[in-house]
């Protein structure tokens, strides 16, 4: 597999991790490679604690009708946490609705970043590829920084990159399913197919899924339900942070190839001869 992540591969031999291993998306550099979704947290206090535990610098928010009874507090909590907002277009089934939602999010949150979701099926919440491409193209033309939630399809990922998306966010498995990465080969192929950052989005169920994503070459992982719906969200946030870090280190360290048969780690040379049994 070709190294395409920009991870330093100098063999220093001292095992030291790069002191800083930031990720840059569309010119914005972040130290954290764990993006956090805000959906599903039972309270804003837990959300706030999970953000701190995850160390995330970029968190998603949705745009919905205002509820006069409970207003403003989410924006305030996120502002206090010092994170940047990544508005999503969750719930949009057409390019037209997604584009309009992105424009409204830009107006509401004063950011031109958007996590573009165009859903094609309400049971699986899988992306609608033609509508996604259409919306991405229009939003790129309007100057948005577009991070599309996409299928684990290397060809589609390349198309999205080629029309100007700032990153691609392939799914590991359906949103909220916790099924992990069902097609790791495709995720690895996506890493090879594009030069923009690859952010594994959707399907992460537990820490090992996040580590695998990073080992496969993803540049970052996005987690929402896996953290917010865990029995102890703050502890899971900490676990995800460690897993992303571990997976990133392992990717840079270069794993051994898989073999069918054993390869002795202890040499035969100097093996004593104890005579006949």
């Amino acid at each position: 597999m070709t190294e395409t992540t920009g991870m330093p591969t100098t063999l220093t031999g001292n095992g030291a991790a790069p002191p800083e291993d930031p990720i840059t998306i569309a010119g914005r550099t972040m130290r954290s490679r764990l993006l956090l979704g805000t959906g599903g947290f039972p309270s804003l206090e837990l959300l706030s604690a999970a953000i701190a535990a995850a160390g995330s610098e970029l968190v998603t928010v949705a745009l919905r009708r205002i509820d006069p009874a409970a207003r403003g507090s989410l924006v305030d909590v996120l502002s206090d946490a010092g994170v940047d907002l990544l508005p999503n277009t969750a719930g949009c089934y057409t390019a037209r609705d997604a584009v309009l939602t992105a424009r409204l999010a830009r107006e509401a949150f004063e950011t031109n970043w958007v996590k573009l979701e165009v859903i094609g099926d309400e049971d699986t919440l899988l992306p609608d590829a033609p509508e996604l491409l259409r919306a991405a193209e229009e939003l790129v033309d309007e100057g948005f920084v577009v991070l599309p939630y996409t299928s684990d399809d290397p060809v589609l990922a390349r198309r999205l990159q080629d029309i100007g998306c700032a990153a691609v966010m392939p799914l590991g498995s359906p949103i909220g399913s916790g099924m992990g990465i069902r097609n790791p080969y495709n995720i690895a192929l996506i890493r090879e197919a594009v030069e923009v950052p690859v952010v594994l989005d959707a399907g992460v169920g537990t820490a090992s899924d996040a580590a695998l994503a990073m080992e496969l070459g993803c540049d970052a992982v996005m987690a929402a339900s896996a953290i917010s719906r865990a029995q102890d969200p703050v502890r899971m946030a900490r676990a995800m942070r460690a897993a992303v870090h571990a997976g990133r280190l392992a990717r840079g360290a270069g794993r051994i190839p898989r073999r069918l048969y054993a390869t002795a780690s202890t040499p035969d040379e100097g093996l004593p001869d104890f005579g006949p049994a």
Partner: peptide
């Protein structure tokens, strides 16, 4: 936002007022 002050509403206007909600 800059246009709210002067924006005249048609009789059958459909208005959506949106804000941040947990999601994604």
């Amino acid at each position: 936002r800059a246009c709210w002050e002067l924006f005249a509403l048609a009789e059958d206007a459909r208005v959506e007022v949106l804000t941040a909600m947990q999601g994604g």
